[in-house]
C-alpha cells in the first residue's frame, strides 16, 4: 500500500559495505515507508543478501560509507540485539540450528526482549504458551516443534515457518525476509507467504529479498528494485518483476557495462 504521506521507517543513503576488505555494497539508496512492501531482486552475488545482513548488524560485514536511519535513528551504531528489540527483523535464508536450546524458551526470551523495549510486561512461561499457540496458526505449525531444539533437525520448510513464527511473535516494524522462498515446495511457499500477508499492516513494512517471481505472485510488492554489483540499478512497481520474469537479467549486463564506461570517463571529465 503506497501512501506518500506515510512515515519513513527505513532510509538507506549511499550505503557501502565490505567483507574481508572486499567491497560488496557500493552505494545503495532505498526509502521504505510504513505500509509498503518492497522486493529487492537480483542475481547471485548482486549484494542483496549482504544488504540484509548489514541492516541486521552481522559482525562479518564492515560498513564503509553511507547511512541508515531507522525511524530517524542511526541504525548502524546499534548492536544487532538492540536493532531487533526496536523492531527490525531479519528472516534468515539459512536459519541456524542451535542444539540444546529449546525452541519454546528461545522464542520466549526473544519475545520478552522485544516486549521490554516496548515497555510491556514480561510474559511468564504460561502466558507465553498461550500466545505462542495462538501465533502458531499463522504458519500452521505443529506445537511439537516448540519442544525441539531451535531449528535442529527441521526440514527446510519447517525452518522457514519457524522464521515467520518468530516474526509473528516479535511483531517487527521492518521485516527483511532474505530468500524466504528458497528451498520451499509450493505448499510451504503458500503457508509462508500467507503468514507474511497476515502480518503486513499499514504501520509496518516488509522488504522481500528474492530471485523469483513466484513469491511475488503470492505477496504483491508495492515497489520492486533490481540490484546488481552492489547498487540498486532500477526501481519500479510490481510490473518490473514481471518484466524481469519475461526478459531475464541480460539487460542488467548492458546497463552495468554502460555504467562502467561512465565511471572510466568521469575522472577525465573532472580533470
Amino acid at each position: 500500500m503506497i501512501r506518500p504521506d506515510a512515515p519513513v521507517l527505513l532510509e538507506i543513503r549511499d550505503l557501502q559495505a565490505a567483507v574481508d576488505d572486499q567491497p560488496i555494497l557500493k552505494g545503495v539508496n532505498l526509502t521504505i515507508r510504513a505500509g509498503e512492501i518492497h522486493a529487492v531482486m537480483g542475481r547471485n552475488g548482486s549484494g542483496k543478501s549482504t544488504l540484509s545482513k548489514v541492516l541486521a548488524g552481522h559482525p562479518a560485514y564492515a560498513v564503509t560509507g553511507g547511512s541508515v536511519l531507522y525511524r530517524g535513528e542511526n541504525l548502524l551504531e546499534l548492536d544487532p540485539e538492540q536493532r531487533a528489540r526496536i523492531g527490525l527483523f531479519l528472516g534468515f535464508q539459512y536459519p541456524v540450528e542451535i542444539p540444546g536450546v529449546s525452541n519454546l524458551e528461545f522464542l520466549r526470551v526473544a519475545t520478552n526482549a522485544r516486549r521490554a523495549e516496548r515497555g510491556e510486561e514480561e510474559l511468564d512461561t504460561f502466558a507465553f504458551e498461550d500466545l505462542v499457540r495462538e501465533r502458531l496458526a499463522v504458519v500452521q505449525m505443529d506445537p511439537a516443534f516448540l519442544e525441539r531444539s531451535v531449528n535442529e533437525g527441521f526440514s527446510g520448510g519447517e525452518k522457514k515457518r519457524n522464521e515467520i513464527l518468530q516474526m509473528a511473535l516479535l511483531e517487527p516494524v521492518v521485516a527483511i525476509l532474505d530468500e524466504t522462498d528458497s528451498g520451499l515446495d509450493i505448499d510451504a511457499l503458500r503457508i509462508v507467504a500467507g503468514g507474511v500477508n497476515q502480518l503486513a499492516s499499514p504501520d509496518n513494512a516488509t522488504l522481500l529479498i528474492t530471485h523469483y517471481q513466484r513469491l511475488l505472485d503470492l505477496i504483491t510488492p508495492d515497489h520492486v528494485h533490481v540490484m546488481a554489483a552492489g547498487r540498486i540499478l532500477r526501481s519500479g512497481g510490481k510490473e518490473l518483476a514481471l518484466e524481469l520474469e519475461r526478459s531475464g537479467y541480460d539487460w542488467v549486463d548492458q546497463e552495468l557495462a554502460r555504467l562502467g564506461a561512465d565511471a572510466e570517463r568521469q575522472p577525465a571529465e573532472v580533470a
Partner: peptide, 13 residues
Amino acid sequence: ADQLFYLQSRGIG
C-alpha cells in the same frame, strides 16, 4: 559466530 548472530538478531544479548 553464526549461532550467536542468530540469537542476537532476535534481541537476545
